[in-house]
């Protein structure tokens, strides 16, 4: 899914629950419908949290990948 072009990139490396979610929410609010946010986190809990957050808010989790200690999420704004 790395061919997806992100409109914005958000760095949540080193942050712990619930900050990655709170910052993602804030960032996505600045985007337009259909835009894609790339978020990078190091919190292993963020996989389940991002899945839950997108499910609840209706934003689309396009993909999540692990590379090393990092988790990369692509989210399309509702």
């Amino acid at each position: 899914m790395s061919d997806v072009q992100a409109n914005m990139e958000l760095d949540c490396r080193g942050l712990n629950c619930p900050l990655p979610i709170l910052k993602t929410k804030k960032a996505i609010e600045t985007l337009n419908t259909g835009d894609v946010l790339k978020m990078v986190a190091t919190d292993p809990g963020s996989i389940n949290d991002m899945t839950a957050w997108t499910k609840r808010t209706g934003n689309e989790l396009l993909s999540h990948e692990e590379s090393g200690d990092e988790y990369v999420f692509f989210i399309r704004k509702k």
Binding site: C17, P18, I21, L22, T24, A52, W53, R56, T57
Partner: peptide, 11 residues
Amino acid sequence: FILASTAVAMD
């Protein structure tokens, strides 16, 4: 405060 801020982030 964690639950409340996260809940708001989840609409």
